[in-house]
């Protein structure tokens, strides 16, 4: 079984995760995997999957969580701070630059049209993502009703999300616990 090759220092962690942040459009997780496993070989594919488990289990931006985990693994607390900073610094600067441009030119009809076009595409990408995730769910007749309930409560009734999620987790998680026990 191949061992992970090298032990990155703080600088390498910052730069490695910067490259991930700056190359990712529409979800950077695949880029993180490529950098960690294939390009720099800081971890094997098995190690990557094992660590990703908790990052996906917990709420919050998965890829930030992953940067914390990888940073901690190689450089302890400092690594856990530097890796997510590297991931965010570049994209943050670009986003703020775009925000400045928006403040100046955002009211022009050309800019409004462009943003409208991107928003429409973004809406389509979200729908496609929801569709794919929905199709990947097993035992749809047990679980898809919970998706419908969330849409009703969040998009329809506009209930506060923390309560909806709490109730949803108890109900949907309860059904999942029961179904898991049957096998």
């Amino acid at each position: 079984m191949p061992e992970s090759q090298s032990r990155p220092d703080l600088r390498a962690l910052f730069l490695g995760f910067s490259s991930v942040g700056l190359s990712g459009f529409g979800g950077v997780l695949p880029f993180a995997r490529r950098m960690l496993v294939e390009e720099r070989r800081w971890m094997t594919a098995e190690e990557f999957n094992a660590q990703l488990g908790l990052c996906q289990f917990l709420p919050g931006p998965n890829v930030i969580n992953l940067a914390v985990v990888v940073g901690k693994r190689y450089q302890g607390l400092y690594g856990a701070i530097v890796a997510p900073l590297g991931l965010l610094a570049g994209p943050l600067a670009i986003a703020l630059l775009l925000a400045l441009l928006y403040d100046v030119y955002g009211s022009l009809p050309v800019a409004q049209g462009m943003l409208r076009g991107i928003a429409a595409v973004g809406c389509g990408l979200l729908l496609a993502m929801a569709w794919r995730m929905g199709m990947a769910i097993k035992e749809k007749r047990w679980f898809l009703p919970f998706s419908v309930m969330v849409v009703g409560a969040i998009a329809g009734l506009r209930w506060p999300m923390p309560w909806v999620m709490l109730a949803g987790l108890i109900l949907s998680g309860g059904v999942a616990y029961w179904r898991l026990g049957r096998k």
Binding site: L126, V151, I154, G173, Y177
Partner: peptide, 25 residues
């Protein structure tokens, strides 16, 4: 079992949230 139940239980909720996000935009 409880960990897998939460992971399984969360995914239909996430589907609903992302769909809601699209309708909201």
């Amino acid at each position: 079992r409880w960990q897998r139940a939460i992971s399984l239980g969360v995914s239909p909720l996430a589907v609903g949230l992302i769909f809601s996000g699209a309708t909201l935009i």
